[in-house]
């Protein structure tokens, strides 16, 4: 597969390490009353869609960017690639 890196252009997927669902960015609040439940949900309850899937890839053999890749799990078509850092900032993650 080829992942079109937002900064570097098309790169072979072999240069990347796969992590999983991009929802891993949305780490729960540790001080919430039901923090254990929330973390359990966050870590273990993943969707496994036959179709579009937003997932985390790490450009280990490249610029060390974490990317959010939108990939169709049936066809491998990739319809979006973003820097995970931008996604995280946009979703309100900070310090």
């Amino acid at each position: 597969m080829i992942i079109n890196h937002p900064l570097l252009g098309p790169r072979d997927a072999q240069e990347f390490t796969y992590l999983g669902d991009a929802n891993l960015i949305n780490r729960p609040d540790w001080q919430a009353e039901d923090a254990v439940d929330q973390f359990h949900e966050y870590l273990y309850q993943r969707d496994n869609p036959a179709g579009k899937h937003r997932e985390l890839w790490y450009h280990e053999a490249g610029d060390r960017s974490w990317l959010v890749v939108t990939r169709d799990t049936l066809t491998h078509e990739i319809t979006g690639v973003e820097l995970a850092r931008d996604v995280a900032l946009k979703s309100g993650r900070g310090k």
């Binding site: 570097l8 072999q14 240069e15 280990e60 053999a61 490249g62 610029d63």
Partner: peptide, 10 residues
């Protein structure tokens, strides 16, 4: 310049 793998090495 680009970062690439050669013989499994970054």
């Amino acid at each position: 310049v680009c970062r690439t793998q050669i013989d499994h090495l970054g």
